[in-house]
């Protein structure tokens, strides 16, 4: 009982087939393409050539329509904000009461993580066990997001050596003077940072290494180390910092950390999905050297975060490393 479509040419199936074969472009329909004339179009006059739009059109005080639209926008946004806050507050009173044990958020998922967490991951800190073992893929995404954000900022703020536009020229000059004036030799800052920077580094390393035992982990420890690096840079200048931290260090550390994370977690996901034994000892929960891969992953995440923090600072300050 198959019915033969008499207008197969115009049907969706035909278009899909044509698109599959590559001789139909779905975007071309309904799109007006005007090919610029190249031959003998010199005598054609652009209708907007002699048109000069006066600045008064854009001036808020002289253009009534613009003024009115701005006014309406402001009133509407105030009304929208007030309505949104009141609706949200009204809905809040129908939520389950704060801090009650039978709230819907405290369901079997978190119970499972707490009951089996130490046994399966070896981490005493349930949150670390969750984010670096059960949901390690998510954390890998986070590290990649940080890395990609650094790359994007670098692309946006990079100072091109050959670019001679005034804005780039001005920024290049600014970064050069910044470089010349460093170190500023602020004696108070230098004395304080001599005392503080080693403690910051040690504290950050402590937070990273104890991520599976106590509150903390790669993100917070990495942020502390990054803050230490920034303080050192502020007080001693680029010349001192570049003895141990350049863009090369940033590249190598980020690359090695991300690849280690990827390989380690791929291994454990592969063995876990295929019901193989992973041969990674979990150790005694509570020791520093325990909980399998979590310590390694914490160190990877921490180094990526420290590099990212420092990179953001230098990029925003002088547009380059």
């Amino acid at each position: 009982m198959s019915r033969i479509r008499d207008n197969y040419e115009n049907s969706r199936a035909a278009k899909f087939e044509a698109w599959l074969r590559g001789d139909y472009d779905p975007m071309s329909e309904g799109m007006e393409i005007s090919v610029p004339k190249t031959d003998g179009s010199d005598d054609e006059i652009d209708p907007r050539a002699g048109l000069v739009i006066s600045d008064a059109l854009y001036d808020r005080h002289t253009n009534k329509a613009l003024k009115r639209s701005g006014y309406v926008y402001r009133v509407l946004s105030v009304v929208l904000c007030l309505v949104m806050i009141s609706v949200l507050l009204w809905m809040v009173q129908f939520l389950p009461k704060f801090g009650q044990p039978d709230n819907p958020a405290n369901n079997e998922v978190s119970a499972r993580y707490i009951e089996k967490g130490v046994e399966e991951t070896g981490a005493v800190n349930f949150v670390t066990g969750m984010i670096l073992d059960y949901r390690a893929f998510d954390t890998f995404g986070e590290s990649c997001v940080l890395f990609i954000a650094t790359i994007c900022v670098q692309i946006l703020l990079r100072i091109d050596k050959d670019d001679m536009t005034p804005a780039t020229f001005r920024r290049r000059k600014e970064s050069e003077t910044d470089r010349l004036l460093e170190p500023k030799n602020d004696i108070i800052l230098q004395r304080v940072s001599v005392v503080l920077v080693p403690f910051l580094f040690i504290f950050g390393i402590y937070i990273i290494l104890n991520g599976h035992l106590s509150p903390g982990g790669g993100f917070s420890g990495g942020a502390v180390i990054g803050a230490g690096l920034i303080l050192y840079l502020c007080s001693f200048g680029y010349k001192q910092t570049e003895r141990f931290f350049t863009i090369r260090t940033f590249r190598i550390v980020s690359l090695v950390a991300l690849i280690t994370y990827c390989l380690a977690k791929s291994y454990s996901f592969y063995t876990g999905a295929n019901h193989l034994e992973s041969h990674i000892p979990l150790g005694t929960p509570g020791n520093i050297l325990s909980s399998g891969l979590i310590l390694v992953l914490n160190i990877c995440v921490g180094s990526v975060v420290a590099c990212t923090m420092y990179a953001f600072y230098t990029l925003f300050r002088k547009g380059d490393f």
Binding site: G99, N106, Y113, I114, G117, V124, F126, P215
Partner: peptide, 25 residues
């Protein structure tokens, strides 16, 4: 995630009862 009167989600003296800790998720 907070529940009144419960501990932070870090194992304390070997207790693995879900009713002793707040929600880690």
């Amino acid at each position: 995630g907070y529940v009144y009167g419960r501990m932070v989600p870090i194992m304390n003296s070997g207790i693995t009862d879900p009713n002793a800790y707040t929600n880690p998720i």
